[in-house]
Computed example of a mutant assay.
Amino acid sequence: MRFSGVATTLKKTPLFDWHVARNAQMVPFAGWSMPLQYKGMGQVEAHHHVRNQAGLFDVSHMQQIVIRQPKQSHFMHSILPLSYAQPTNTSAYSVILNETGGIIDDCIATKWSDDSYYLVTNASRADAVREWLQRHQHKYQENTDTAVDISYLETHNQALLALQGPQAAAVLASHSETSLTSLFFGGVAQDLRLSGGAVVHLARSGYTGEDGFEISVERRDAVAVADLLANTTPTVPIGLGARDSLRLEAGMCLYGNDLWEDGLSVGEAGLAWTIAKDRRVKDQPTLFPGWQSVVPSLKLSAMAKRRVGLLIEKGPAARSAAKILDETENVIGSVSSGAPSPTLSQNIAMGYVPPQSAKVGTQLAVDVRGRRRQAEVVKMPFVESKYYRGI
């Protein structure tokens, strides 16, 4: 994970003072002042706490967007490769693409109804996504004479929390009269009332590979909800440091490291599954941006590289941009994300290599600070996901 350099003015989430009061180490990230870790609990301990119990993250730096379109309109399908059959009150991981199929950002798209959607996009790509949305909104309205409303839930009015870990459901259930047993991974509950009266938007998802929830809450209730959850045993607040190692173990991409706009296709990134099957055909109500480039690029024969998982011998961890070598010492790719895995007690990494070197079990090497480290291509996720899919 790359932390920003010194910025003139860093943005603050609604929980900034809450973090400081809990002795968080604040660092610049994507233009925001965010907690790296909290006094008394190091990154590795925090990581294990989420894997074994429950942790609360402030992810209010993420951009939250509400899009409303007339019923029978296909604006959302004109901008994202979402399935036409996506059920109401479900979330789907998706990609925001330019006209040549380049990845502008990845996002979570929630369908509230046929005419209402909710998007969460990355803080580092907020301006690029806004420009892209505005451009497509104007184009769609001109071509169809249909009004589309896009609202940004600004951070000064809205916070976003993530409660993650095997005990997350029990913690949340203790503060809700609504049963969570029928809310499966990817499901959404609108207007859920918590103890104390706060009404939140709840999505059963996250960025750790564990069961968990993302909770959108109005600023006026943000501190109260954070206190409510963080003060419920065994929950503790967790910072960006552990969030990064958790998402890497889960094989999840970080935009700017594992994903970028130019010179990377959806297929090469290992995200072909985000292009719904009913969106790959030409005969459909509308095509998403870059369709002509994306669909052919999903074939293995069209890929110049592939994202892979690497298990690396013990020693210093391979970090972003470290060179990946074949058995004859030729440079064939580079690491996009790398770190020690607290769960596996082993160095892990993701990176890009030619398709012929991407098969699981392939023996490679990584140049770590000028020293050759043995590496093996392995299946991702590195740690088995534990999403809740029903009793």
Results as ranks from 00 to 15, higher is better:
residue 1 M to K: 10
residue 5 G to R: 05
residue 14 P to D: 06
residue 26 M to Y: 02
residue 42 G to A: 12
residue 46 A to Y: 00
residue 48 H to I: 07
residue 51 R to N: 06
residue 55 G to R: 05
residue 55 G to P: 09
residue 67 I to G: 08
residue 68 R to M: 09
residue 72 Q to P: 02
residue 80 L to T: 10
residue 81 P to F: 01
residue 83 S to Y: 01
residue 86 Q to F: 00
residue 94 S to Y: 00
residue 94 S to H: 01
residue 95 V to K: 02
residue 99 E to M: 05
residue 107 C to Q: 01
residue 111 K to T: 02
residue 126 A to T: 10
residue 130 R to D: 13
residue 137 Q to A: 08
residue 140 Y to W: 06
residue 142 E to C: 09
residue 153 L to V: 06
residue 155 T to H: 13
residue 161 L to K: 03
residue 164 Q to L: 13
residue 174 S to C: 10
residue 179 S to H: 06
residue 181 T to S: 15
residue 187 G to I: 05
residue 193 R to F: 00
residue 197 G to A: 08
residue 200 V to Q: 05
residue 202 L to C: 06
residue 206 G to Q: 03
residue 216 S to R: 05
residue 230 A to S: 15
residue 231 N to R: 07
residue 236 V to R: 10
residue 250 A to C: 08
residue 251 G to Q: 02
residue 252 M to N: 04
residue 266 V to I: 12
residue 270 G to K: 04
residue 278 D to C: 10
residue 280 R to P: 13
residue 288 F to H: 05
residue 289 P to F: 01
residue 295 V to L: 06
residue 315 G to Y: 00
residue 335 V to S: 08
residue 345 S to Y: 00
residue 354 P to I: 07
residue 356 Q to W: 00
residue 357 S to V: 02
residue 368 V to T: 13
residue 375 A to H: 03
residue 378 V to Q: 12
